[in-house]
Simulated scan of single mutants.
Amino acid sequence: MPGNERYPGAKRRPGTKKGPTKGSGGNRRQGLEGRGPTPKAEDRVGHPRARAKALAEARAARPTRAKQLEKIRRRFEVPEDHEIICGRNAVAEAARAGVPMSRVFMASSSATDDRLAAVVRRAALLGAPVLETTKLDLEALTGGAVHQGVAVEIPAYEYVTARDLLERARAAGRTPLLVALDQITDPHNLGAVLRSAGAFGADGVVIGERRSVGVNATVWKVSAGAAARVPVARETNLVRALTALKKEGCFVVGLDGRSEGVVDDLALADGPLVLVAGAEGAGLSRLVRQTCDTVVAIPISRTVESLNAAVAMGIGLYEVDRLRRRARSGRD
């Protein structure tokens, strides 16, 4: 009857009925699993710390400068028994003294420097190749020394004996003046002593074979070429060599700051003389000191404990040269 019908309410559209639906069959189960702990910042792709870590690893993979220099040196194939001397003065003096050269390395032009031009001429006479190199090449060859754009390769230094030094001086008509160094291990000291020996007319330097530095690239550099003019004798036993020189008529004088005598009162300075210096601090060894005919000191201020071997020997050679000049002027 009209008025008795019920309002049917909202009707669902077909296909929208709620209720159980067909499952995924486990296809999305992996998406429901956890991802584990959060990675560290440096392990997250795109994170600033991750980029910094990758950059640091790339830098670490690059060859270090030391390895780079060693690789360059191996490329030049320098024999182990050869020396590389560098610096314009040292190289020019070596060329002037006729030191045999195997190769010349230059990173600068010789047109503006007469010293380098002389080196090139000497190399041409010897048939030694002149190689144009970079400054990095020279840094590798010289071990980082101040090369001034030039270096030369020379054979191992040829030592003589103490007797050779004595005979050469006598053959030249000179009163022998030799320098002996007791356990000097610093190449800078040996180089400086060679320079002083050349300046004051010494006939050579005697060094020991053990606990003593030999003539190397640093010695060449510090001596400013004096290593090419002043011969060096290397003896197995320094005490035995000094004893032999004494038998040949030489007067052996040790330099030691603890002595009561002073060098400017040295007698017999105008005779055949061997001037001996020891290492800084330790001074002369016991046996060398006992072998000396006399030991003298160089007067210094009480505020300074001692002089190193190079400085002491330079002063000692100056005093001997001064006393010899006075003796010659007195005879004249």
Rank of each mutant, 00 (worst) to 15 (best):
V146S: 14
V230G: 07
Y318T: 13
T133C: 05
M1P: 14
A50K: 04
E33Q: 10
R210W: 03
V239S: 09
A309P: 12
V146N: 08
P176W: 15
R121A: 13
G198Q: 03
L165R: 13
V179P: 15
S223V: 10
G87E: 00
N27R: 06
E80I: 00
T291I: 02
I84F: 07
G214F: 12
A97Q: 04
V99F: 07
R328E: 12
V320I: 15
I154F: 09
L245K: 09
R121V: 10
G201I: 05
T112S: 04
A95L: 07
A224E: 09
G34E: 02
S110A: 09
D186S: 11
R195K: 04
A56V: 14
N189T: 05
V206E: 06
A10K: 10
P63Y: 04
A97R: 10
V206I: 07
A124M: 07
P2L: 15
K71G: 00
Q183T: 12
T16Y: 13
G25T: 00
A310D: 08
R326Q: 04
G208A: 13
V213H: 05
A140D: 01
M1T: 12
G3I: 13
S24V: 03
N4G: 07
V230T: 10
E209Q: 07
G283A: 10
P2V: 15
A224K: 13
L284K: 02
T142K: 14
A267L: 15
L266C: 08
E305M: 03
M106A: 13
L307Y: 03
E153P: 09
P8D: 10
Q183L: 03
L55W: 02
E42Y: 08
V104G: 00
S102F: 08
L266S: 12
A217H: 13
G19T: 02
R326I: 06
P187M: 06
R258K: 05
V262N: 07
S102Q: 14
L116H: 03
G23K: 01
Y318E: 10
G23H: 00
T218V: 15
G36Y: 01
V78N: 00
G278E: 06
R195S: 08
R96V: 01
D81H: 02
G23Q: 01
A41F: 01
V160C: 15
R328W: 07
K11V: 06
L266Q: 10
L165M: 11
P2T: 11
P2S: 14
P63W: 02
A282Q: 09
V276G: 04
A60E: 13
A95D: 07
R73L: 00
T133M: 01
R170L: 14
P20M: 03
E158H: 13
E57Y: 11
L165K: 14
A123D: 08
E209T: 06
P187H: 08
N4Y: 05
E158L: 15
G198F: 06
G214K: 05
S212N: 14
P231Y: 14
S108T: 08
G26F: 00
A202T: 09
C250G: 02
